[in-house]
């Protein structure tokens, strides 16, 4: 496929809702194999940015390219390459976890035979092997989140957008989710874009982060770079939280 390093590139991306500018002229690029973290307070525009990258929301200005394609015009191709885990991912409560996965597999044009194998593997991978035949309505929040990851595993996309994957999980669940995300990148060579408030975990896995505040991307770079720039000292012990709060106060 595309041999260039950059898989997602946004230039001057803007989204205006009426009088409110949800995303304000942001530009960034994500390289292949990276885990990129979007950080920002509620209402910063993270979800909006992700939706624009998927072509589910039209940008008001600027453009975004996924593997060199504009999702507005090549939405199918983009959606084939991109897996998306929405914040508060939902499932059909009447169907079992397995049936939910099968439905997604069919929508992706997988034959039932292939999907059955993949569903087994994916359920195994996310630790839902025994829960696959339960109705999704009976799933806990953590199980739903993991079922969402299983869905991504089945689709085998090149890039995944995870919108707040750790939201509402207990510490143990967060850890499991973090390692799952890491495995996506390490074992399956997926490029991961995630948004989160869990600064501590983001710090653990993200190669690079972008900090969004009130629609503006105030900083992009590795955590070290940002620490150097904002904290101004070569600190051995710094937290992302410190950097983040600094940006937040400035804004």
């Amino acid at each position: 496929m595309d041999t260039s390093k950059i898989v997602v590139e946004a230039t001057g991306l803007t989204k205006v809702y009426g009088s409110k500018t949800a995303v304000d002229n942001i530009s960034f690029a994500v390289d292949r194999g990276e885990i990129f973290g979007f950080l920002g307070p509620n209402g910063a525009g993270k979800t909006t940015t992700v939706l624009m990258m998927l072509g589910l929301t039209e940008p008001s200005a600027g453009r975004v390219e996924v593997m060199g394609l504009d999702p507005r015009f090549a939405s199918i191709k983009v959606k084939q390459m991109v897996g998306y885990l929405p914040e508060n991912v939902g499932f059909y409560g009447d169907l079992t976890g397995r049936q939910n996965l099968l439905y997604v597999a069919r929508l992706n044009g997988l034959t039932d035979k292939v999907s059955h194998d993949r569903i087994d593997q994916a359920l195994d991978a996310v630790g839902l092997k025994d829960e696959g035949d339960k109705r999704a309505a009976a799933y806990s929040r953590g199980m739903r989140q993991r079922l969402g990851i299983a869905e991504l595993l089945i689709r085998e996309p090149d890039i995944v957008f995870l919108d707040e994957p750790t939201l509402g999980l207990d510490p143990d669940g967060i850890n499991r989710m973090i390692s799952l995300i890491q495995s996506l990148s390490l074992e399956r060579n997926m490029t991961v874009l995630l948004s989160s408030h869990q600064l501590h975990q983001v710090q653990r896995i993200c190669h690079r982060v972008g900090i969004m505040i009130k629609g503006k991307l105030v900083a992009v770079g590795t955590i070290d770079e940002l620490a150097k720039e904002k904290l101004g000292v070569e600190q051995d012990t710094f937290t992302l939280e410190e950097i983040y709060m600094k940006y937040f106060k400035e804004a």
Binding site: K79, G83, G90, L107
Partner: peptide, 8 residues
């Protein structure tokens, strides 16, 4: 949103 994100 999940449905809409599928390649359809």
């Amino acid at each position: 949103s999940k449905l809409a994100a599928q390649p359809i």
